[in-house]
Amino acid sequence: MTPQDAENLLFRYAAQQCTEQEEELVNAWFNKVVKETDYAEPFSMNVHAMSDDWERLIAERGKQMPVHRHKTRIIGRSVAAAVAAAAIAVGVLLYYKPPTKVNNAAIAATMDTTISHRDNDFKLTLPDNTVVYLNGASSLRYARSFAGKQREVFLEGEAYFEVSPDKKRPFIVHSRGQKVQVLGTHFNISSYDGEPVSTTLLEGAVKITTTGSHSQEVLLKPGFQATLGPKGFEVKEVDPGSATSWKEAFVFNQTPLKNVLKQLGRWYKVDIDSSRVTAVTLDAVYGKYETLPNLLKEITQSTGVKLVLNNNVITVE
């Protein structure tokens, strides 16, 4: 587990987005820190040390620890302090009052984590007046105020940024495997798990840097897109509007049906059974506020593949 993976897992835990096994891992780490630490004052823990701890816990659990299922999780004073220490390690301060118990929702709120609505785009304005549009199943983590020499946010999923200009304080977006640095510009980042990370620039200029062991840097011009792959960045000229069309509609251009369903699953908060999906592609534009049953009927007519919704799962009949 990399330090970035550990950091992301901690914030997914706070936002109640973890799997049961991930919750077990974080809970085990909390218990370990509680036993080993004096909480007279919150302390700073290096995120690399946190990552190493979790690697050891994963190894131990694989060998001797069964998976226990927790139905509820209420965190008291000592664990709240552990969360505070972990949050300090990744640059976010959690405040807690000793007599008050802290539950998941409270932790998520204090961390200033914003989670998009799963069935609606979400627009927000950051403390520096930067405007961000979050796509479905996406989240953005940011500080309560940008008081330092730079403005940093952490993205999971996809977002479109209209960055407020500030020549003295660069705006930095951290996403999976890369960071994007700008002074003031408009750009889109897509970084869903299991999909390539792509950055598309509409205006201005951005500098993109990989965060892996072999650092690579690219300067992007308007109308170009940088996709991060195993060998680094691939830069190509694109239609910038196609990268941001998700703000208004579903736009499919020779899109494999499996990818179409993946997008619908994120938006309508349903699961996908793609085991019987054929290699057909789709060319179509649909409004994002169309009902899912109507959309499935239209896609069925266009592709000849009968799609049905049963028990919140889209399948091929």
Rank of each mutant, 00 (worst) to 15 (best):
V285M: 14
K306T: 07
L292R: 02
Q181E: 14
A226W: 03
L25R: 07
S139F: 03
F187H: 13
V305I: 06
R69I: 14
L292V: 01
F171K: 08
A82K: 03
T72Q: 10
D271F: 01
N46R: 07
A106R: 10
V316T: 15
T19C: 04
S198G: 10
A89S: 06
A86N: 04
S215Q: 10
E55V: 12
K258T: 10
S215G: 04
K179G: 02
L9K: 09
G148D: 06
L134S: 05
N104A: 09
P99D: 05
V33W: 01
F30M: 02
S116K: 02
M65W: 14
V197R: 12
T100H: 02
E217H: 07
S175N: 09
R176M: 04
I299R: 07
D193M: 15
A159N: 04
I107G: 00
E195I: 13
I172R: 14
D52R: 15
L220E: 11
P98F: 03
L220S: 12
K168S: 08
S302M: 15
S215F: 00
T211E: 14
V131R: 15
T114G: 02
N253G: 00
L25I: 05
T315W: 05
P256F: 12
L282W: 07
K236I: 04
T315Y: 11
M65R: 15
G76P: 03
D283H: 15
R276G: 06
V313C: 05
T72E: 09
N188L: 08
R276V: 03
M1F: 04
S145M: 11
A85M: 00
E20H: 07
S175L: 05
A284C: 08
V182C: 05
V280K: 12
H214L: 02
N259Q: 09
M50V: 13
K179C: 01
I75A: 06
A89R: 05
I189L: 04
A81Y: 01
R12I: 05
D53L: 05
V313F: 08
I75F: 06
V238P: 04
V197A: 10
M1S: 09
E158F: 03
D38V: 07
